[in-house]
Amino acid sequence: MSEAQTPGDESRQRLGFLSAAEAAALTHRGVLIPDPTSVLVSPGVRLGTGAVLWPGVILDARDGGAIVIGAGTQLFPGSRLVASGGSIKVGAHAEIGEEGGFTLKAEAGDVIEVGDGARLLGGGSLTRSNRIGRGAQILGPIRCQNCTLGDGGSYRDPEPDARGAVLKGSGVARQIDVPIGCVIQAFGLFSEGVLRQQSYFHPKPAG
């Protein structure tokens, strides 16, 4: 092992990832990586200034796949993004993987888009093609396939019905389309869930 190598570098490179030193060098481009030895990043992954890779993050682009992460986006422990011939694009200031990680997997022909300020929390996944709009949220261990969540304000927007679309609960969501300001809460099949305005869950105070 050369002085520049760390334990595991040979395995990293055989699996198509940057060495630990190369991962650490991403910090020179403004990426925040508290523990470079704990993250796996493929060459060619594009990371915006201020993006945060917490320990245990995997960004795996292979077979012509592409991964783009916007400025200021946080990838929490357990986040795994795999572009195996497909495309994954995450906008700015999104939050991916808090409260249990999150998996995004785009195979050949798949396009996964996650808008600015979106939140994907609680151990769920996106597979096949999905468009998670600006400010939209997936809250819980939900397996999403071919879903579209409408653009809107972030979860901090004072008007609930102007926020990005939301899926919350647990289960499977296939070909679900949720417009701005709406939410489906389900525990099982989201196709059987009820589409409601977000103000149903977040009513404005009386007076």
Rank of each mutant, 00 (worst) to 15 (best):
Q145C: 12
L126P: 09
V172N: 05
A83P: 08
T148G: 00
I69P: 01
R134M: 11
S154M: 14
P160Q: 15
G97V: 05
C147D: 00
I142V: 13
L121A: 01
L75A: 03
G65R: 01
V82I: 14
E98T: 01
N130W: 13
G135H: 02
A106W: 12
R119N: 03
G65W: 02
I138L: 12
D161W: 15
G140W: 15
E159K: 06
N146I: 04
G135C: 11
L139K: 07
A83C: 05
K89N: 03
G164L: 11
K89D: 02
S79H: 03
R119E: 10
P141F: 12
D161N: 14
D110R: 00
E95C: 10
D116L: 05
I69F: 08
K168F: 04
S79G: 03
D161L: 15
A66E: 14
F76T: 03
R134L: 13
R62I: 05
G65L: 07
G97P: 12
L81W: 14
G117I: 10
I88S: 03
D116C: 06
A92P: 00
E113R: 01
S154P: 10
A136P: 02
P77D: 04
G85V: 13
T103A: 07
T127G: 05
R131C: 09
S79T: 14
R119C: 06
A92N: 08
G169W: 12
L81I: 13
G150W: 14
A83E: 05
R62E: 09
L121V: 02
V90I: 15
G117L: 13
R62S: 10
R128Y: 12
R80T: 11
P77I: 02
L104E: 06
R80K: 13
G86A: 09
L120Q: 07
A106M: 06
R131E: 04
T73N: 03
K89S: 07
G97C: 05
E95M: 13
G115Y: 07
L75D: 01
G78Q: 10
F76S: 04
S129T: 07
D161A: 15
G109N: 00
Q137K: 07
K105N: 12
G123L: 09
P77S: 05
D110N: 04
A71P: 02
T148L: 14
L126G: 03
N146T: 05
A173E: 02
G64S: 04
I112D: 01
R134H: 10
G117R: 01
G100L: 08
G72W: 08
R128M: 13
G135E: 08
R143Y: 11
D63I: 03
I96S: 00
A94R: 04
L149K: 14
G70H: 06
A94C: 03
A162Y: 09
S129M: 02
A173H: 05
L149N: 05
H93D: 09
V90Q: 00
G109E: 01
G101P: 09
I69Q: 01
